[in-house]
Design a protein around this nucleic acid. Structure first.
Length: 286
DNA sequence: GAGGCGTGGGC
DNA sequence: TGCCCAAGCCT
């Protein structure tokens, strides 16, 4: 199976198997697509659906979000994780309101300049909202292309220039946005990281990794440390603060995390990040 | 450029 | 049961 046939087979599979996600519907606006891309950074689709709908209902355009306090955005973010993304989305909405007349820019470099928008998100918004052609290289697409063309199970943590150039060679001339969406969906539903369903894969016969006997990842990747970390501490503190409308007394935060020195350090870092503010008696969302 | 940054589900 | 992973970004 040559490359062109592989691309065609994946696109055909996508036509039959794509999930009906609200931000993929024809009526989805660039802003709705942009909100979905922020929420989907490191967060599974299933957990995004609810908060996304509530978010776009409440703030149907960037200017509406920009007019709200950042604390409202943080609370609406709920338990999606990485709440700094809520701040960055708010900051991006403000920038769009100030610099782009309230319209999500259709220019790739202007997208890339927005807070919280990196290489992936800029390419994704550009492709899915405006038909842009930059390679949309998320972890799914990277894994699919890597397995098709090598005996390596999982992509490395960081993208190299070479990987980006090679990925760009896969894009067809016609509707490359649909190709990237198709490759992404195949990675999300079939060519998954842990237990790929190769028997359901439309391009199994073209897969180098499968032909090599599905060799496992070289080195076990170091797991994300969690218990006792500042990340866990910050999460526990933010959960308490999200659950209150106003101020939270210092004792209540102390009950949420025993280690006083770590608690103070994390509170300070949350203040520095703009996720919380200091009050007379404790802290609150901004 | 290596590491920090949430949260929860699946195996 | 723990461990791994998830549509990354920023410093």
């Amino acid at each position: 199976m040559d490359r062109s046939s592989t691309v065609t087979a994946i696109r055909s599979w996508f036509a039959d198997n794509a999930r009906d996600l609200p931000w993929r519907r024809p009526e989805a606006t660039p802003w709705q697509i942009m909100v979905s891309e922020f929420m989907l950074q490191q967060t599974p689709v299933a957990r995004v659906l609810g908060p996304w709908q509530a978010w776009v209902d409440r703030w149907p355009e960037p200017a509406a979000l920009a007019a709200a306090p950042t604390g409202d955005a943080i609370r609406a973010w709920g338990r999606l994780g990485y709440p700094r993304r809520a701040l960055r989305l708010h900051a991006a909405a403000t920038a769009i309101t100030d610099r782009h007349d309230g319209q999500v820019p259709d220019d790739h470099d202007q997208l890339l300049a927005l807070p919280g928008v990196g290489a992936y998100t800029a390419a994704a918004i550009h492709a899915f909202a405006f038909g842009g052609t930059a390679p949309v290289l998320d972890t799914n697409v990277r894994r699919v292309l890597l397995r098709l063309s090598s005996t390596t199970a999982l992509p490395p943590a960081h993208i190299t220039r070479a990987e980006r150039d090679q990925a760009a060679d896969w894009a067809p001339d016609h509707r490359p946005d649909q190709w990237w969406a198709a490759a992404m969906e195949l990675g999300a539903l079939v060519c998954t990281a842990r237990t790929p369903d190769c028997t359901s894969c439309p391009v199994a016969s073209a897969c180098t990794w499968l032909a090599a006997g599905q060799p496992p990842p070289d080195q076990p990747r170091r797991g994300q440390a969690w218990v006792g970390t500042d990340r866990q501490c910050r999460g526990a503190l933010m959960a308490v603060l999200r659950s209150h409308d106003g101020e939270v007394y210092t004792d209540e935060l102390a009950a949420a995390w025993q280690d006083g020195a770590q608690r103070e350090r994390c509170l300070a870092s949350l203040v520095a990040d703009g996720l919380i503010v200091v009050t007379d008696v404790g802290h609150r969302l901004p």
